[in-house]
Write a protein that binds this DNA or RNA. Structure first.
Lengths: 292, 292
DNA sequence: AGCTCTTATGAATCATTGA
DNA sequence: GTCAATGATTCATAAGAGC
């Protein structure tokens, strides 16, 4: 601890994550949250993995992720298959099946509803306004801090809680004969509720130099939900560094891997100047950098 | 034509759609929109197909659907895999892959965001608030009438409409059953835009006798989008008859197949009494069919 | 008409208990 | 051991009644 704050490390590594991940220890990461290059997208930067090669390209990487993730950790994969020649490609479906065979549990599929999706008009298709947020786990006993992502309760509650309905009373009675007051107290004064598995977020164009940046709110939500302060977050496709920047802000250790040197510079330039212990690799390898 | 209206047929057939579908002609249907029983759900009424048997159960049916669908037609499949033992089941993914092998094009996946999803609280999962609306086609040259589902721009969002609460706006938005947008009268003078592939609809509670009725707005939206008046709509799992009722209201011919006799009666009782030519069949088969 | 308030309930999920 | 049934948990909406 320094100045009353936790000592947080933000580590950025340059290289192909398939190789760099081997430097990380077994069971050392609490959350992997990443948005890998989609098939045939961003050709100029990532070489454009063909859809039919996507699964075989991804499996060696996910094998390492499975190794470095703690048994209580979670892997969030943001991905969406593109439409090509009038058809949705199936490589994402095949990837889910392949990851299960690799040993992952396919725990959940969240939907990211992009409120301001990409504009366009086609004769046989509407604009694509959603992406998959696939949750994979190593075990069933993963950490989940649901209270950290509660949202304000809807207006409907105000009137309802003034005069409790008969149904509420009946249901409460049915539950345990004596104590309906106990349950009512859970509702009165309640201001937040748990969200569901559809996330409504706008896309951001915060980093113009990076074509596929997701909004801060996306990693932020999953970091809240699946980690605590001092935990470690990994993004093997760091890109413009959204995950790292958010993790640092939230007092989580983080590790980012990025294959494009220009992005490494971008990440460094955008990292916050707070009183945190930050180290960058490999350019400043083992050289401790302090801001502020 | 009768009384200035089109002569529309609403045909309801009792039996297992796997067999009944064989009575239909090749290339005779413009739109199939259906919500088959989900694996292991509705055990009492539909016998609860096991997840591991789901694909093999469905393929003979979809083979017939492929035959009866016009080359310009569309097949909309509403389905969602359940979570069991902490994991999402994969039978829906496998079904998509199997349907492609059967000759279907997987054109699109719409998301039905259920605004009023089922309540509940679990330590490792949030409430499930979405279902898949999978679009399959026979050819790339399917009919799509995008203008029929345009929605007003801005509208209730720009605050020009009095001091409606946020809840009221949303409620208004969903009430008229059109799926998107408010009363038609409110649309006058407003510019319209094309929607995207995320549908925000509530589940409905008024078909109390059928446990899994989807809202009118769902088939209505797809019927608008993929058919014109006088076209033919097919629902091989008619259930409480939502698709048929909506199709009739919209001057589309429709064919419904349902295995449970009680539902046939329910459909007939709910069908509107407009000046339409309606035929029900086959009354005589009622005694022969066994179910359960 | 328009707004408020009441009431019912929906393709859910998991842990526990019992056969 | 496995498998089936039961209890506990919980929120956003529509319909309807009332003013």
């Amino acid at each position: 601890m320094r100045g009353g704050k936790m000592n947080i490390e933000t580590i950025i590594k340059l290289g192909d994550c398939k190789n760099i991940l081997k430097e990380l220890q077994d069971n050392s990461v609490d959350l992997v949250v990443t948005s890998p290059p989609y098939a045939d997208c961003r050709k100029q930067t990532y070489g454009g993995i063909k859809p039919q090669n996507y699964v075989e390209w991804f499996l060696p990487i996910s094998k390492e992720l499975l190794r470095v993730l703690k048994p209580t950790g979670t892997f969030i994969l943001n991905i969406k298959e593109k439409a090509e020649n009038g058809e949705r490609n199936i490589y994402v479906l095949e990837l889910i099946l392949a990851l299960r065979k690799q040993g992952w549990l396919w725990t959940e599929e969240f939907i990211w509803h992009k409120k301001n999706c990409y504009p366009g008009k086609w004769p046989n298709r509407f604009r694509d306004a959603w992406e998959r947020l696939l949750q994979f786990n190593k075990t069933k006993n993963f950490n989940m801090y649901q209270d950290a992502v509660k949202v304000p309760i809807g207006g409907w509650a105000n009137g309802r809680l003034k005069n409790l309905s008969e149904t509420d009373k009946i249901r409460d009675n049915a539950r345990n004969g004596s104590g309906f007051g106990k349950n009512i107290s859970n509702w009165i004064g309640k201001e937040t509720v748990y969200p569901d598995n559809v996330l409504h977020l706008s896309t951001e164009c915060y980093n113009k130099k990076h074509s596929a940046a997701f909004p801060d709110a996306l990693p932020e939500w999953f970091i809240k939900l699946f980690t605590q302060e001092g935990d470690t977050v990994l993004d093997p496709f760091a890109g413009s560094g959204t995950t790292l920047r958010v993790a640092q802000k939230m007092y989580r250790n983080s590790i980012g891997i990025e294959i494009i040197p220009e992005y490494i510079s971008l990440i460094k330039s955008q990292m916050s100047q707070e009183d945190l212990f930050v180290s960058f690799e490999p350019e400043l390898k083992y050289e401790k950098v302090k801001y502020g």
